[in-house]
Design a binder for these strands. Structure first.
Lengths: 232, 232
DNA sequence: AAGTGTGAATTGATTCACAGCC
DNA sequence: GGCTGTGAATCAATTCACACTT
């Protein structure tokens, strides 16, 4: 766990979040989503086993995870869906509005600007920002693109504390520095470089090519394995 | 670690890949990228400390990780950049060509089709597939969109073994089932549901909204903390 | 009878610290 | 003298298994 880097597995923490383990935190969004889906289907109660299946984890882990938040279940019965949704929402900060700024309106920035999954979870795109003058004023996903020079003003005016870096690798660190200087405390990094940030600022990296490479690694192993068996 | 699910930290493994720990595998792409960048800048040798900084990890972890692959460094000197790039490439299966099929050509599918980072790392988009008839024949990122009915044929003809699911949540499981039935052994899942797959098939999930939620969790903690201090 | 909550055991990952080699 | 490679120590996450509650 580093303040700035990491992989499918070791990102963040800067403030050791009360007692909730990092691995548990990373699964809470999963549980939240599964619960919302169950609620939509009219379920009022779930057992740890049912919820675990819906979230794609095993039930022991789920119960352990939930136990870090409190004792929200009823023995012999299960969990009240609505109550648990509420508790997890509160824990995740979903009950508040999070204005987000997206820097870099290339392919990915475009997709993010149009992505519906953000709005439905309390994330509001406060502004899109791009360095390219020809994009300034363009409308993307219903939002107008602002010049990079406006970054600081936007962060201050909208009270942005989460920034998304979707720029080319070469621009990422500078953009990140400016975001942090302007007061942003959390950065989601799609660029292919690790971002250096001061202690207290959190960064998560999402690296699409890395994800494919990890799959390729396992795939290759499987094929070697299959070849070996065929040879025997 | 489940065959199908995951957390900020626990995805995959199906074939316990020789001796290399999962956490190490997930960092290899990071090292690979940092090395390529160093090579571009003309470096011929790196110490574990330099490479660690470039990759955003600490040097002890880096050395331990590399030691799982073999003893590729020279004591007192460091690592030969080219040689190490080669060894990691080989380990990751980067020396071979990986045809990939992308199912779902919405916002995200578009961005993925245009994403340059794939091609440069041995991943070739063999085809784009979408269920919407009005997209069939359209050209996206220089590739023509095929109807969903062609999925099995495409996988077979192009020898696809990695599939990318970028469909709405409701369609994801069915698409995944068809991919797996057609012979795909690794799936990258951008949909907001866990995919159930048979043992031996690997799935990695990338969930953009979850990443923001994890950041929001930490951000909220920081703000509560800051409020508490201000009150004292 | 059913199912949560949790200590204890286990497994896995990270960090330390230094012997060994260049 | 500098830096890798790695056992040993530590720390974190997962799983087990069962006491306890409804």
């Amino acid at each position: 766990m580093t303040r700035a880097g990491r992989n499918g597995r070791d990102q963040l923490p800067a403030v050791r979040s009360r007692g909730v383990p990092e691995a548990t935190i990373a699964r809470l969004p999963l549980y939240h989503r599964a619960l919302v889906a169950l609620d939509d289907r009219g379920a009022t109660t779930v057992s740890s086993e049912e919820l675990a299946v819906a979230a794609g984890v095993n039930s022991a882990k789920l119960r352990k995870d939930l136990s870090y938040l409190g004792s929200y279940g009823t023995r012999g019965v299960g969990y009240d869906v609505n109550y648990l949704v509420y508790q997890i929402s509160r824990e995740l900060g979903l009950t508040q509005d999070w204005p987000v700024v997206i820097v870099g309106v290339g392919n990915l920035g475009h997709a993010l600007a149009n992505y519906q999954g953000f709005a439905s979870r309390g994330f509001r795109i406060a502004a899109l920002v791009d360095a390219a003058p020809e994009l300034t004023g363009e409308s993307v996903g219903g939002l107008c693109v602002h010049p990079l020079a406006d970054l600081e003003r936007i962060v201050a005016d909208a009270g942005v504390c989460i920034g998304v870096v979707a720029t080319p690798a070469g621009a990422a660190q500078e953009v990140c520095d400016r975001l942090v200087a302007a007061g942003v405390g959390s950065v989601l990094n799609f660029a292919a470089v690790p971002l250096r940030v001061p202690v207290g600022v959190d960064v998560r990296r999402v690296d699409l090519a890395s994800e494919l490479q990890i799959l390729a690694f396992h795939q290759q192993r499987k094929q070697i394995e299959a070849g070996r068996e065929a040879a025997v």
